[in-house]
Amino acid sequence: MKNFEYAAPTTESEALQLLGDSSVSTEILAGGTDLVGLMKKMIVTPDRVVNILGIPSLRTLERRVDGQLWIGAAVTLDTLLDSPYLAGYDAVTQAIRGINSMQFQCQGTIGGEICQRPQCWFFRGGRGLLGEGGQAAANGDNRYHAIFGNDGPAKFVHSSRIAPALIALGAAVRVIGGAAGRGPDGADGEVGERLVPIAEFFQTPRHERQRETILAPNQLVTHIVLPSPAGIANATYEVRHGEGPDYPLAAASAALRMDGERVADARIVMGQVAPTPWNTVAAAALLRGRSIDETVAEAAGQAAVADATPLSQNAYKVQLAKVAVKRAILAAAGHPTGGF
């Protein structure tokens, strides 16, 4: 590990001070399950590490009067699982359960989970976020890489297992810091706050200086805000090779607004298939106005992957993404998913 300077702010504004110092490169530390390993391997080499676990406002869980659930970014995943507030957000609960390691759940935070870096073995092997401008994955072993959104240099898949559920449920993230939401070019010292729809929070980097989120170095996610789940049937289904914290081969989260037996509106988001969580409008459109059964779910799965562009070695992921979508929809509607 490169040596770095360390600070543990106790307020949001202190954190912003520490992050806003443009003379040093900074990383935000919460649970450490991702960052510390990356620093040990010298993949990430900040001058300064800012630990946000000691900021009380980031560790709160709050149900607002309007039904929104405000989850502090530094709330650990096990705290969430144990909390009554997650009732109704089955897609989130199932995604957290899928992580399947007590240690990661107790140590990892929800903010860290959505901001974790790609698992891509080229990135983690020291060959850059994009893996030599995308060439490493294009020419090399891409069995776990993207089957959507992979026409640019980014071929990795977004790692977050919870983000698809959050997007499906219409969540937002509260971002504070320099020119919040204006991107990395915001003027120094300008501080703001805004709620970013979480779907817009993720981006596909086009070059090595970009990251997988819109967060600028002087910005911080403080909360994840979920709308009330009332009337929304939802679920997450992950296709996992085996037990343990290994990442799924493909996953999907489904949120269905039901009108009696029929789907009034739907949002279906796939995970582990693209450099960002991948919202499939086609699958959602197919569901509208129909009641869910196996045939409809299968058709939605088919629609979800119709435009997939697998790389040389990952065509099998198209089938897995299709099954994940189908089973997430079935689970959301309360039907058996099939499988084990």
Binding site: R64, V65, D66, Q68, W70, G170, A171, A172, A179, A180, G181, G192, E193, R194, L195, V196, P197, E200, V225, L226, P227
Partner: peptide, 14 residues
Amino acid sequence: DFLRGSGAVAAATA
């Protein structure tokens, strides 16, 4: 700034 950027679930009370 907050209002300008507010997303789908933004709520003034919050």
